[in-house]
Design a protein around this nucleic acid. Structure first.
Length: 563
RNA sequence: GCGCCUGUAGCUCAGCUGGAUAGAGCAACGGACUUCUAAUCCGUAGGUCGCAGGUUCGAGUCCUGCCAGGCGCGCCA
């Protein structure tokens, strides 16, 4: 793993030392085999256990056929000091080797952070792999609600994290602008228009009930009501459908932009039909016997590929199902050259995964190239009380309303401060609070506070913060070393978030870093009478500020200069 | 009935893919502002990691079986 700007990062240096010691020990006959496990280095929770520790000896016990503590001893006996990096080592517990670093080894990391700046935390672990992240993809039949907001925050953040780690990422929104629901949308608008024109119409319960349908009807009526009256009903409904879908899609795009989310591509489902790719795909699958006719319909043999039963792709009435266009869509994704496709779905769609995976596999792509992030549902609360949400009745709180009430930063942070595998209670009152119940401000406050220090420093005649060895050497307080260690961890946190598609690691890391900073701030002054000490501390807090900014950037949350 | 997700402090949640004495915030209690922003900090208290087995040097983490909650199980999307 190459982590830019941190190739001399402590952990990898320790790993190298351990591996080297193991080889030396083997050469000296102190070990029995070169079957070494992966060298795992961790930071012990307990400070008494050193700066780093490895469980190499325990993991090797079986293959080496030796007692763990004896292996540990062999390692320690052949360990170099890493050019003065190590102060001492010890063997502890069942066979841990604990490493204690020279305290002076840490401040240089501040220099590295400052030098890397925006690039600190970026890496090449993605190696340019082409990844597509498709998220939200809500049907253009109504405005986005909070659940979509969670999906948007997760999808966008995953994309940012992957891009940060050297993946070639594309964000895409799939517009379901075809099919029966769009017809229903058109009919809903059409009927509301006739209502506006004074007709008494019975509005069916399976039509979209929300007020936004009336708004659309009003707009359309004002713009081209006359023309529509002259059309026959079917043509008018079709026209209404296209108008409404386009208008709602525009609204969705605007809401997402206000939420900090931009897509590289908006992909139309209808375009798959227009270009004949759905038919082409079905014919191809029929030719291969994967799609077969039965009971007057066409079925996909998903049961051969792990699904519990076969699925219909063309109904008895000749109409395709959504599954049919989804197959064509996903095949198209791979044809566009993506090595990996990530779909972000609401948890209520989880039953769809086996058949989609089956389709991807049938198209000749490995299952590891298709990943679904299932985002659990959002319970919207106000002051602890559930807020009624029902798409059917049209009574729901839209994403736009939530963003207007609590702000995009707070909303995004809350969405991302929970594992998407867990359901989320989103309390509007809590989200508005500027307290520690609402950690986005806690983290942003660090950035603002440091900005304030830097302004003050400039007033006192220190216009720029520049690293100097003798200044860095003054960073010896325990809180300072702790802060630097936290900074050192950042690139790994990002890499891990990318590897396990776990954006929530970023906010948790930032909260931890913020806590260390606030504690430091309360205990020590940055601006002192001692120029070297002051410069050393300015370097440190500037490095903290940069990491906070970089981290918040992965969440698309702002880093304010003042609050 | 079957499948997926969840179950960790009073509440909301982490727990780095199996490591050493399980953490944070809120709420509670007690402290700290003539100082670079108190949207902050320090301290106290709070636990049978849903339950029971199993795997091994070692389990909140992995496997099995239960229990509870959420979501799904259509020729709907």
């Amino acid at each position: 793993m190459i982590v830019r700007g941190t190739s001399t990062l402590m952990k990898s240096r320790i790993q190298a030392l351990i591996l080297d010691a193991a080889r030396q020990a083997l050469a000296a006959g102190a070990l029995t085999t070169d079957q070494f496990p992966e060298v795992l280095v961790e930071e012990p929770k307990n400070e008494g256990h050193g700066d780093f520790a490895t469980n190499f000896a325990m993991l090797s016990a079986k293959t080496q056929k030796m007692a763990p503590r004896k292996i540990a001893q062999a390692l320690v006996d052949h360990l170099g000091d890493g050019d003065g990096l190590l102060e001492r080592t010890e063997i502890a517990g069942p066979g841990f080797v604990n490493f204690f670093l020279q305290p002076v080894a840490w401040p240089d990391l501040v220099r590295q952070v400052l030098a890397a700046d925006h690039a600190y935390g970026t890496s090449d672990i993605g190696a340019g792999e082409k990844v597509q992240v498709e998220f939200v993809s809500a049907n253009p039949t109504g405005p986005l609600h909070v659940g979509h907001g969670r999906g948007a925050a997760v999808g966008d953040s995953v994309a940012r994290i992957l891009a940060c780690c050297g993946y070639d990422v594309q964000r895409e929104y799939y517009i379901n602008d075809s099919g029966r629901q769009i017809q229903t949308l058109g009919r809903s608008v059409y009927l509301r228009m006739r209502e506006l024109q004074g007709e008494i119409v019975e509005f069916p319960s399976d039509c979209y009930q929300g007020d936004y349908i009336r708004d659309l009807a009003r707009e359309l009526s004002a713009a081209e009501g006359d023309g529509l009256r002259e059309m026959d009903e079917a043509a008018a409904i079709g026209h209404c459908a296209r108008y409404a879908a386009r208008s709602i899609t525009d609204g969705i795009r605007r809401d997402l932009e206000n939420f900090g989310v931009r897509y590289d591509r908006w992909f139309s489902e209808q375009s798959l039909y227009d270009s004949g790719r759905v038919d082409q795909c079905l014919n191809d699958l029929k030719a291969r016997g994967i799609v077969y006719a039965a009971e007057g319909a066409w079925w996909f043999k998903t049961s051969d590929l792990g699904d519990e039963k076969d699925r219909v792709v063309v109904r008895q009435n000749g109409q395709t199902t959504y599954f049919a266009s989804d197959i064509a869509y996903h095949i198209d994704k791979y044809q566009r050259g993506f090595d990996r496709v990530i779909d972000v779905w609401g948890a209520d769609h989880h039953g769809y995964i086996p058949r989609m995976s089956a389709a991807v596999e049938a198209a000749g792509h490995g299952r590891d190239r298709f990943q679904v992030i299932l985002v659990q549902l959002v319970n919207l609360l106000r002051g602890g009380q559930p807020v009624a949400m029902s798409t059917r009745s049209g009574e729901f709180v839209t994403l736009e309303e939530v963003v207007a009430e609590v702000g995009a930063d707070a909303a995004r942070f809350i969405f991302l401060t929970r594992d998407y595998d867990s359901p989320l209670d989103f309390d509007l009152e809590t989200a508005k609070q500027k307290s520690n119940d609402n950690p986005v401000y806690y983290v942003q406050y660090v950035h603002a506070r440091i900005a304030s220090i830097l302004r003050k420093a400039a007033e006192q005649g220190i216009p720029s913060v520049t690293w100097a060895q003798r200044a860095g050497e003054r960073l010896i307080e325990a809180e300072e070393i702790q802060l630097i260690k936290a900074l050192a961890r950042y690139p790994e946190v990002v890499a891990m978030a990318a590897h396990s598609l776990a954006p929530h690691r970023i906010p948790f890391y930032l909260m931890q870093l913020a806590a260390l900073f606030h504690a430091y701030y309360n205990k020590h002054r940055v601006l002192t009478d001692d120029p070297d000490l002051t410069m050393g501390r300015l370097c440190l807090v500037l490095a903290v500020q940069k990491v906070i900014r970089n981290g918040l950037g992965l969440l698309a949350v702002g880093a304010p200069e003042q609050m």
